Computed example of a mutant assay.
Amino acid sequence: MKKTSFIQKLEVSKKEFHEISKLITQPNIISNQKKYRILLNKYTKLEKIVSFYEEYKKKLAVLQEINFILENDSDIEMKELASTEKYNILDNLSSIEKESYNLLLSSKYESDTEDYRNGAILELRSGTGGDEACLFVEDVLRMYTMYFKKSGWKYRIIHVQKGGIKGYKEIILDINGEKGVFGNLKFESGVHRVQRIPKTESQGRVHTSAITVAVLPKVKDIEVNLNLSDIKKDTFRSSGSGGQHVNKTESAVRLTHIPSKITVECQEERSQHKNFEKAISVLRSRIYQKEKEKRLKKMSTKRKSLVSTGDRSVKIRTYNYPKNRITDHRIHKSIYNLTEFMNGNIQEMINLLKLFEKK
């Protein structure tokens, strides 16, 4: 974040802090316990940011004095002292900037109900590239599940459609964890392109394939009111694993939301009832996302970038195996450690995307 932008955000926080400090003393706010608790919680968090900001301004003032001494004072001993002090001040300023940035980021998440959600639906689908694309879906699935493990999140498979030879044509996961699950994963929505030599390639030529990733916020039933009369339910025999049971009973479920024409399948559970519950959860998230996209189109001026709009048609990232490189095209950032990245160490890229979004 640029220093001018950083200070501007601190100024905005300070102004908001003073506004809230006045509001929480008003009788009509105090009498509304729900609103009062929300404002008081925000007041406490902003108070920390403002405290850091005041300290930051003091250090900047001292730094200005030190720079004046270094430029104008002829006393060598005084300059040496000033030089040492300048090093300490710069170190202090760096620490304050990091602490303030983390608080600003935390405050942003808590004011954005979507970013602060503790659940998400992750959908991976193969695109161009045939079998190689299906294999890459499997590789990216492994990457994400390792990331979930590092983050302490839990996941379960909702739906799987296997590829022709290996890998997956489609796989859908339900992820749950601490607050901020969606706020981290939302940046993954879009087209992920892979450039590598397929195992079946005898000439050693690099092929380009692509898969699509979609991240949907997990929503509650009160946020999307589904009318069962608008849903068409079909059952069929599961094609997945599960032995004789799935071959003899129609436990798999396909739901079609007639108004939006959105279709969801779920066949991972042995129970039709459980598959229905999972399918309803995914359907609710997809309907919510579709409505959200409509709102964003109407408010196009607010779409500053494609960083977190979830546009699935946009190529967001390239995984180049021969060059050991991952490039995120939205922020023009490359990381030259593909092995570690595919082992779930993707937080660095996510943090950079968060930083870019806040500019």
Rank of each mutant, 00 (worst) to 15 (best):
K220L: 13
F52Q: 03
E188T: 10
R254N: 15
K261M: 06
T212G: 04
N41L: 04
N102A: 06
L135M: 06
S281T: 14
H192I: 13
D174N: 09
E97A: 10
V50L: 07
I262K: 01
K108I: 05
E265Y: 08
S21D: 15
V140I: 15
T263H: 00
I331T: 02
L103K: 10
A133V: 10
G129Q: 03
T128K: 14
I346E: 04
T145I: 13
K154T: 12
T318N: 02
N88A: 07
G164R: 13
Q203H: 06
K218P: 01
K294L: 15
T113K: 14
H207K: 04
N351S: 10
M299T: 15
S31R: 06
M1K: 11
L63T: 01
D174L: 12
S13P: 09
L105E: 08
V194Y: 02
Y336D: 13
D131S: 08
Y87L: 07
Q8I: 02
Q64F: 09
K98N: 13
G163T: 04
Q289H: 11
V181H: 09
R317S: 02
E265P: 02
N227V: 05
N247D: 10
T256K: 07
P198W: 09
I158E: 00
P198Y: 09
Y109M: 09
S281L: 12
A252M: 05
S251K: 07
E188V: 10
F236K: 09
I172A: 04
W153R: 01
S241H: 09
E47P: 04
F52W: 01
R270H: 11
I280K: 13
I96H: 11
L60A: 05
V314C: 04
E277V: 08
S31T: 13
R303T: 12
E348I: 15
V253M: 10
V224K: 09
K333E: 05
I258H: 08
L63D: 05
G344I: 08
S251P: 06
Q64A: 12
Y109Q: 05
T249M: 04
D112A: 01
S74T: 14
G183F: 02
K42E: 12
E138A: 15
C266F: 08
S111E: 14
E293S: 07
A82P: 00
L338V: 08
G177F: 12
S13I: 06
L185N: 02
I197Q: 03
R295C: 07
K162R: 07
I29Y: 10
K315S: 06
E47L: 00
G243L: 11
I29E: 05
A120D: 08
H245K: 11
Q272P: 03
V12P: 00
G129K: 09
K278N: 13
L185W: 07
V50H: 01
